[in-house]
Design a protein around this nucleic acid. Structure first.
Length: 420
DNA sequence: TCTGGGGTCCTAGGACCC
DNA sequence: TCTGGGGTCCTAGGACCC
């Protein structure tokens, strides 16, 4: 077991690195990427981190600081980042075999060998990804996922790779606050502190049973992870997704139900198309309409859901259900700031058993129609068919003031390379 | 004026049943 | 008059993550 390691690969400042890929002139210069609506800072280059700009800070609060520091800012360009992400993980799979993707820019993997061997392997991996995709990465290797996360954070501060064995781990844990550990947030930190636990060493020196009694399964799992004795394994990378969501804040609040209906329609189209792309059907749809988190209407808004007898990925069915929920939720004279749609209780659309009450012929026709719509929408004319829309998009869709071109997903935006 | 979007897992407590 | 206790299932919401 000593020879089996679990690794975490983490793309450095991922969104920033994606933008720099097509703007090499920005390498070494301060760059930040903003969330949708240009609301918050969601990615920072090292130069921006060094300016003490925190993650997630509202853009308007630090606009001046960014300007003063000549920071180049981009609106989020998620389709571009997803495309680059896919390339990183393709290389990773080719090199390492099975990987468990954890987020758009991180994945776990297992590797075996002596310290020197695995160190060599991850240096290789780093080089190959940086050569082939052009995104800088950090890789940490240790004896549990939680340790590997920590190793990756050490890697980021040094050569970009870090193999953390048990010997070194046991010497550094007295200096690692629990708050720096993956999965320990502000609330848990307070709870641990209240019980006299501040560092990883404190935690590991405690009685395992007692930790379980006080902190439940979360506390027990943390012990196993920190101790490194949980045999490393990957969650099956194909493990079924549990829910799909589409939601967005509006540029300006609205009291108009037609605008809300238009936004809901947009989100339903998106989750329905996602379901079909992933070959899934949903048994539950949930609609949320929210007011601003800041202001006089915090307690208004709400969430309602409805279950289907037959799971579905049919845009019409989902749309009808969602619009009905919206009507139930809507109140006059409330300024809404955000709406969203979640589908869950997902089942495989291939193996799904039809209800006795659904005519098979009807189902087939609907599937065919959805297929035609999807083909139209993914072709040259993106989003040609917009079911349920009343074209009020401008009234709710947000600002994307400085979005980079679609270098990889739109022919017209492909970067041109010219020889001298 | 302006505060993201998309997920997972766990828990407490209510409903219901015997 | 007296008003159990234990189990399961479900849901809303909390906590955390990137």
């Amino acid at each position: 077991m000593e020879n089996t390691w679990v690794g975490l690969l983490d793309c450095n400042n991922f969104f920033v690195s994606c933008e720099r890929l097509f703007r090499p002139d920005l390498v070494g210069k301060p760059v930040a990427v903003l969330s949708s609506n240009d609301g918050c800072v969601v990615a920072r280059s090292q130069e921006v981190k060094d300016m003490n700009v925190p993650m997630g800070v509202p853009y308007f609060q630090i606009k001046d600081i960014l300007k003063k520091g000549s920071v180049t800012t981009f609106s989020s360009h998620i389709s571009l980042y997803r495309d680059i992400s896919r390339r990183v993980f393709e290389v990773m799979k080719r090199e390492m075999g099975q990987v468990e993707q954890y987020s758009i820019d991180e994945a776990f993997f297992i590797c075996k060998g002596s310290f020197a061997e695995v160190e060599n392997m991850i240096e290789q991996l780093k080089n190959v990804i940086e050569m082939e995709v052009g995104i800088p990465v950090s890789i940490g290797l240790a004896h549990s996922k939680t340790q590997a996360k920590y190793a990756a954070s050490m890697a980021k501060k040094s050569a970009g790779v870090k193999v953390l064995n048990m010997e070194e781990w046991s010497t550094i844990i007295t200096d690692i606050p629990l708050a720096k550990i993956w999965g320990v947030g502000g609330q848990m930190e307070l709870k641990y502190k209240a019980n006299g636990l501040v560092t990883v060493a404190d935690y590991l020196a405690s009685d395992k049973q007692r930790l379980g009694a006080i902190f439940g399964v979360v506390g027990q799992r943390l012990y196993a992870e920190l101790s490194g004795y949980a045999s490393p394994s990957l969650g099956s990378s194909s493990s079924a997704q549990k829910s799909l969501m589409s939601s967005r804040s509006f540029k300006n609040p609205t009291e108009n139900i037609d605008v809300l209906a238009d936004a809901i329609a947009y989100h339903v189209r998106h989750v329905a198309a996602d379901l079909r792309r992933l070959k899934l059907k949903a048994s539950l749809i949930r609609v949320s309409i929210n007011t601003s988190r800041h202001g006089d209407f915090i307690l208004r808004g709400g969430t309602l859901d409805v279950a289907f007898n037959d799971s579905t990925n049919d845009t019409f069915k989902l749309m009808a259900a969602a619009q009905k929920l919206l009507k139930q939720l809507y109140e006059n004279d409330v300024p809404y700031k955000k709406v969203g749609v979640v589908v869950s209780d997902l089942v495989d659309s291939n193996g799904q058993q039809g209800s006795l009450f659904v005519e098979e012929e009807v189902t087939r026709k609907q599937d065919r129609l959805m297929e035609i719509i999807d083909n139209l929408n993914t072709g040259k004319n993106k989003n040609l068919v917009k079911l349920g829309t009343r074209l009020r998009a401008k009234e709710w869709q947000g600002r994307q003031d400085s979005c980079s071109p679609s270098y990889t997903t739109r022919w017209s935006d492909v970067a041109r390379v010219s020889a001298k």
